[in-house]
């Protein structure tokens, strides 16, 4: 979205002489790690993930990681998988950790074969490692926002905590893979722990959210928050799949 805007303005100032320009740029792309070659199972699980109400991955470019299914590569119909993903509004750009046979199939299905990133050996180690360790490693970057988050704005802290040093207004969305801290009023929607982190929490100086969610468990606040918590510092955390709001 932002990229698009910038490009529009750019074209104001630069008169291009050639029709195209090729440049190398680094992108961070979401990776879909396959643990199975069963297309029905993959589709079902993806639908469950996408149905959690978060739209970050809609229209996202996606790389399929084949490291964990290397041995069953012959059973995998990459073209059909790309079709399923497309129906779910995910755009597959390529595969990685593909063996020679899978690489050939990928090219035939119109997918790029990506090199680099995590090597096969690393991927194998990681996939056998405990998941909590992996989130621990990922949870590092904290995003700090100094201005109010206004209606219609959406802020996502990928791989870390989100700290808002102002208010989150009605109609705004704040999202984090980790915790969310709001040092003003939280009046909009807050999604913490969207990377499956059930231990994530939401903190606010004044807790009046429209909706709060932790690791996909959400609650709408149709009724105003209890008067004991009205305008007071509070936190929201997950206890047995139920959101709990408590004073700080």
């Amino acid at each position: 979205m932002k990229e698009q805007e910038t490009a529009d303005v750019g074209s104001l100032h630069h008169q291009r002489t050639s029709a195209v320009e090729l440049k190398g740029t680094v992108f961070t792309l979401p990776v879909l790690k396959l643990h199975s070659t069963d297309l029905d199972a993959i589709e079902h699980e993806l639908k469950v993930h996408l149905a959690r109400g978060l739209n970050f991955f809609r229209h996202a470019p996606l790389v399929i990681d084949l490291a964990a299914v290397e041995k069953q590569a012959a059973e995998l119909d990459l073209a059909a998988l790309a079709g399923i993903l497309r129906r779910l509004q995910l755009f597959t750009v390529g595969v990685r950790n593909a063996g020679p046979w899978a690489a050939e199939r990928a090219v035939a299905a119109g997918l790029a074969v990506l090199k680099g990133g995590v090597t096969k050996e690393e991927a194998k180690e990681k996939s056998s490692a405990e998941p909590p360790v992996a989130t621990e490693v990922l949870r590092r970057r904290t995003r700090i926002i100094h201005h109010p988050v206004r209606s219609g704005q959406q802020i996502y802290a990928k791989g870390g905590d989100l700290i808002i040093l102002s208010s989150v207004n009605v109609g705004a969305e704040v999202i984090a893979d980790g915790n969310i801290h709001v040092y003003g009023s939280l009046r909009g929607r807050a999604f913490a722990g969207v990377a499956e982190d059930t231990g994530a929490r939401i903190f606010a100086q004044s807790m009046e959210p429209e909706l709060a969610a932790i690791a996909g468990n959400y609650q709408v606040f149709d009724e105003p928050v209890p008067s004991s918590l009205q305008g007071k510092p509070a936190q929201i955390y997950l206890e047995e799949e139920q959101l709990v709001m408590a004073p700080l």
Partner: peptide, 20 residues
């Protein structure tokens, strides 16, 4: 007030000053 909040967000994101 809600609509003004929205337009304030636009001023902060979609103006030339914001983009540059």
């Amino acid at each position: 007030v809600r609509d003004s909040d929205r337009i304030l967000g636009m001023l902060a994101a979609k103006s030339l000053r914001a983009i540059e």
